[in-house]
Amino acid sequence: MLQKKICLLGAFGVGKTSLVRRFVDTIFSDAYLTTVGVKIDKKVLTVGTEQQALILWDIAGEDEMSAVRLSYLRGAAGYLLVVDGTRPETLETAASIQTRVVAQAGRVPFLALLNKADLQEEWALPPQRLEALEAGGWLFRRTSAKTGEGVEASFQDLAALLAR
Rank of each mutant, 00 (worst) to 15 (best):
K5P: 03
V14K: 02
V14C: 07
V14F: 00
G15N: 14
G15T: 12
G15P: 07
K16V: 11
R21C: 06
R22F: 08
F23M: 05
F23Y: 12
V24L: 08
D25V: 02
D25F: 04
D25I: 01
T26Q: 05
T26G: 01
F28H: 01
D30M: 00
A31S: 11
L33T: 11
L33V: 15
V36C: 05
V38Q: 11
K39C: 06
D41A: 15
K43R: 14
L45V: 13
T46D: 00
E50L: 07
L54Y: 10
W57Y: 10
I59W: 08
I59V: 15
I59K: 02
I59H: 08
I59G: 08
E62N: 02
E62Q: 15
D63P: 09
D63N: 15
S66I: 14
S66H: 12
R69G: 09
R69F: 06
Y72K: 10
L73R: 01
A76Q: 03
A77E: 10
A77L: 08
Y79E: 10
L80I: 14
L81N: 11
V82F: 04
V82M: 06
V83S: 06
V83Q: 01
D84A: 10
G85W: 00
T86H: 00
T86K: 02
T86R: 03
T86C: 07
E89S: 12
L91P: 02
E92G: 03
A94V: 08
A95Y: 00
A95W: 00
R100Q: 14
R100L: 13
V101S: 14
V102L: 13
A103V: 05
A103L: 12
A103G: 02
Q104S: 04
A105L: 00
V108Q: 04
F110Y: 15
L113F: 02
L114R: 01
N115F: 01
A117P: 00
A117K: 06
L119W: 00
Q120M: 08
E122D: 12
P126Y: 08
P126F: 13
P126I: 14
Q128S: 15
Q128G: 01
R129A: 14
L130A: 14
E131I: 10
A132G: 15
A132N: 07
A132T: 15
A135S: 13
G136C: 12
G136A: 15
G136Y: 03
F140H: 09
F140V: 12
R141Q: 11
S144W: 05
A145Q: 02
K146L: 13
E149C: 08
G150V: 07
E152L: 13
E152T: 13
A153T: 12
S154Q: 09
Q156S: 10
Q156M: 08
D157A: 15
L162T: 13
A163L: 13
